[in-house]
Nucleic acid binder design. Structure first.
Lengths: 159, 159
DNA sequence: GAGCTGACTTGCTCATGCTGAAGTCAGCGC
DNA sequence: GCGCTGACTTCAGCATGAGCAAGTCAGCTC
């Protein structure tokens, strides 16, 4: 199969999944909210405190994220309390875990302070640290540079 | 080992690798420049055309990325041409491949148009598609939710 | 030495994201 | 039925990012 990189100008990146993903989760606060949500945070004021963003910004971000179907706004009720709403991850949101993990791995390696990473994700079954790695469908792990770029069905060729 | 999520308020996210990574590669255009760089683009005007961002913004972004050590500005000379500069990925930049790949996978699943993805990364050796997956150091693949959060050496406990 | 081209820079304007302070609003506890 | 609390909203105001148009600058070609 041809490697598309050999003729990068023959195709456009109009239909680019990376760009589309960035349009949805491209802002710093959205990513940090996802980090918190993946760590289990659900309530408005916890998000505000833990992400370190102001209330107006948080309200706006959460509204966007519910509209984008990353979070779901669900009513709940603790005994003796009135009904409130919490923000739960949808499947679409939960599937950002590899993205956040890859970002955390990279930050641990290239942007951590001397003390090292503050948190480590570990495999529940064996306790070993978890990382985002590249793997092909045949099960081979990818080491630097073993990748070709092939055309997918949604490619838009330039005239 | 305790799961930190059980007491999320006992530690702060001051020293957060995700936030630090976002401070460096958090903007849409930076990510799209990384996409292009990982696809092999090196020259200023190619970046401008392929990323679809204006020249002033591109010049500013590239300068930032060189300062952040994601790219290196290297002089080169084609025969009959004068000396120019190209932008080559550093190791720090190349190691963002899992992040971009995870983002592309997610975009393919959740934000692609009906035609499907426009490009597919394949393993050079076997031709199978490549994905970013979570794996622990013992080699187990992580399926949804098998993750604990443990304290790392850089954790900052709240007083 | 005039023109061309690639790689920027400058200047201006618009849009977005965030901040801080203050206000609103809905119920449960009393 | 008054106050409290959690969850917001409203209102300036600032900083950043991006767009477009135009200008600059170096050095190779002719």
């Amino acid at each position: 199969m041809e490697d598309l990189r050999d003729d990068r100008d023959s195709w456009s990146s109009e239909n680019c999944s990376v760009a589309r993903a960035m349009d949805i989760v491209g802002s710093r606060s959205t990513v940090l909210i996802m980090r918190e949500a993946l760590l289990g945070t659900r309530r408005f004021d916890d998000f505000v405190r833990r992400v370190g963003v102001g209330e107006p910004a948080m309200a706006a971000r959460l509204k966007e994220m519910v509209a984008a179907d990353l979070l779901e706004r669900i009513p709940y009720r603790e005994p003796g309390q009135r009904t409130r709403h919490e923000y739960q991850l949808t499947r679409k949101g939960r599937e950002l875990l590899p993205v956040i993990t890859a970002l955390r791995n990279w930050g641990d390696t290239w942007a951590a302070d001397d003390a090292g990473p503050s948190i480590v994700a570990t495999h529940h079954d064996c306790g070993q640290p978890v990382r985002a790695v590249l793997r092909c469908a045949a099960g081979h792990e990818i080491t630097d540079g073993d990748i070709d770029i092939a055309a997918g069905p949604g490619i838009i060729r330039r005239s």
